[in-house]
Simulated assay, not measured.
Amino acid sequence: MMDIKKVVLAYSGGLDTSVIVKWLQDKYGCEVITYTADLGQNEDLEPIKEKALKVGATKAYIEDVREEFLKDYVMKAFKFGALYEGKYPLATALGRPLITKKMIEIAKKENADAIAHGSTGKGNDQVRFDVSAVALKPDIKVLAPVREWELKSRDEEIEYAKKHNIPVPVTKEKPYSIDRNIWGLSIEAGPLEDPFFEPPEDIYSLTVSPKEAPDEPEYITIDFEEGMPVAINSQRMGLVELVEKANEIAGRHGVGRIDMIENRLVGIKSREIYEAPAAVLLLEAKRSLDELILDRESLHLKDQLAQKYAELVYYGYWFSETREALDAFADVLNKRATGTVKVKLYKGTATAVARKSDYALYSKQLATYDPTDTFNHKYGEAFCYIWGLPLKVLGQIRK
């Protein structure tokens, strides 16, 4: 058995991490220090601190990192329009490297031997925590009790918690696993593990049912400066306030529900439900602006690299040079990403319907077919001849 005297645990106050505090103490006889990051869970974290101390932690750190999360993590992926498998805005995946970074800082400060997390052996988060930790501190030990303990199901964990008087916010009747931050919410487990099961309405908390959304559409404008959203309806605000506002507006129109069969990093498929009102709204607006200001080759290459960027985040490679290099690419393309996009919100959809920018590459004089057209149509014949020449030669050989 490893000689572990002090552990920093990523602590949410949920079922797994609540049980882990006691389990670590029993297995290693070690001191447990908890760390809880306020990523915009929209809950009072003081009771979580009290719970951590109550179940045996010697210290409980709580830190508001919403601004840092949005500015240094979310917005980097946002500039690419990165979506894993074309759907997932990476809310949870983007939060893990930041949490790990903070835990490593505390481990150094407290002279801890290890950090610990509550991820399972077939989940994605185990990789994100483990890989991020060793990237930042190669000699750190990383513990994941759920991968090795004797508790084989969530029901057994609940019984363990009851036996040791550990309060947990989950019941056998609603055994959903929920992770929330300001950029989105994920829901899994329980009956949702049946891919043919339609999610019940009561699992959603950030969005109203599209059926119950307003019968009239709402139009809002999003202002961008160098790829960053800075204002809603011409009202400038900080990132945290802006994303919270976007969540509220889009959520009341039922925008942001995602139901997908996702390919996990470990090679299995899982059914995931996400709510991400602000992400869906803002990404729709940003995509519309990019179409307006980027040339064809830049836009197409950005789309290709966005997929790679999303994979790097999803796979836990945030602290890689590849991700840093891609950030430099995105920064160049976003230098001119300044403008305004109007979005229509209606019954679960967010659709960009108008956009403008001083840096637009769109020219009405070139695009129009009315008398103001400045495009010389005679050049089209020569262009088609040169463009099709390789295929013409190939056709002759085939014939």
Results as ranks from 00 to 15, higher is better:
347 K>L: 01
356 K>E: 14
324 E>D: 15
347 K>M: 01
356 K>S: 12
336 R>F: 08
325 A>T: 14
323 R>F: 11
359 Y>H: 14
345 L>F: 03
347 K>R: 15
360 A>P: 01
356 K>P: 00
352 A>G: 07
326 L>P: 07
332 V>E: 15
326 L>D: 07
336 R>C: 02
357 S>Q: 04
325 A>M: 11
339 G>I: 01
349 T>I: 00
352 A>L: 04
322 T>V: 14
322 T>I: 13
359 Y>D: 11
327 D>K: 09
325 A>R: 15
360 A>C: 02
350 A>I: 02
343 V>P: 01
353 V>I: 14
328 A>L: 12
337 A>R: 12
322 T>Q: 15
334 N>S: 15
353 V>E: 10
358 D>A: 13
349 T>E: 14
348 G>Q: 10
358 D>S: 13
329 F>P: 05
356 K>D: 11
332 V>R: 14
354 A>E: 13
339 G>V: 03
333 L>K: 09
352 A>R: 04
325 A>L: 13
329 F>Y: 15
341 V>F: 02
328 A>G: 05
330 A>E: 07
344 K>Q: 10
349 T>V: 03
338 T>C: 04
325 A>P: 00
360 A>Y: 00
322 T>A: 14
329 F>E: 02
358 D>E: 15
332 V>W: 09
341 V>A: 02
355 R>M: 09
330 A>M: 08
357 S>W: 03
342 K>M: 13
346 Y>M: 05
344 K>C: 10
338 T>I: 03
341 V>C: 04
326 L>G: 08
346 Y>H: 14
330 A>I: 07
343 V>W: 01
323 R>C: 09
329 F>L: 09
353 V>S: 06
339 G>W: 01
346 Y>A: 00
340 T>F: 00
